[in-house]
Design a protein around this nucleic acid. Structure first.
Lengths: 116, 116
DNA sequence: GACATTGTGTATCGTGTAGTACACACTACT
DNA sequence: AGTAGTGTGTACTACACGATACACAATGTC
């Protein structure tokens, strides 16, 4: 699924119940030109900036991290966190790269619930 | 410690034992102009690209992730890994953000040694 | 003293990013 | 039939990124 398809599909889904989710209206609320959003939804040209993508995700009720990922980006706050301890996080993430979802999820839970 | 200071100090340290670590010679081996490396070592202008930084780190025997971090960047392969599972890794990294080094390190070891 | 080497200042450049502006054709109402 | 709203095509733009090119003064070396 491309970024454009994702955005278009979710916007159109919302539109079924609310006429205000036309491309033009959404563009207006997000603060960009309609023609630009049109291009974004068709994956033409480079994807919007992180800020614009986050506002777009919010408008469509989608997870910002997912939208950013579809645009080939990683949230700035995650990058900051890694940058503060590059060796440690580098090791950890590379270690987890090939592990299945459930293993990573188990780790998340362990950290959240455990006495760290 | 800034990127420029870091690079300059490590280059000059190497230079004590090896005359070939002049700014010009290093720049040549890394494949950039001396005047550009000079600016980088004084933190003028925007830092080099990821590729150039990695070559620079290699030349100076330093950890690429550390050099990238000093330049305000995160290695492309880590970004790719996060982008493949944005929600999972987003949760994990945000969970670990405020934990002390030893806790994160313990996690790294657990994953590496455990039966995952 | 000559010659090479060193680091730096100034000017310039091509490419990519992240958009705007506006006209156009089509569809939906009423 | 007229008006409002819809998505799109084309052209353009400001700015940042990631450098290069080359001259220059200072320092080292033989």
């Amino acid at each position: 699924m491309s970024l454009g398809n994702f955005l278009r599909e979710h916007r159109q889904a919302l539109r079924k119940g609310d006429r205000s989710y036309s491309l033009r209206r959404v563009a207006e609320r997000v603060g960009i030109e309609p023609s630009y959003l049109s291009k974004v939804e068709r994956d033409l040209g480079s994807p919007p900036s992180e800020e614009t993508l986050v506002r777009l995700a919010g408008e469509l009720g989608q997870d910002p991290d997912v939208v950013l990922a579809l645009a080939g980006k990683v949230s700035g706050d995650l990058k900051d966190t890694i940058r503060r301890r590059p060796v440690l996080f580098g090791q950890l993430i590379r270690e987890l790269r090939d592990l299945p979802d459930h293993a990573v999820l188990r780790l998340v839970r362990e950290v959240r619930d455990g006495d760290w």
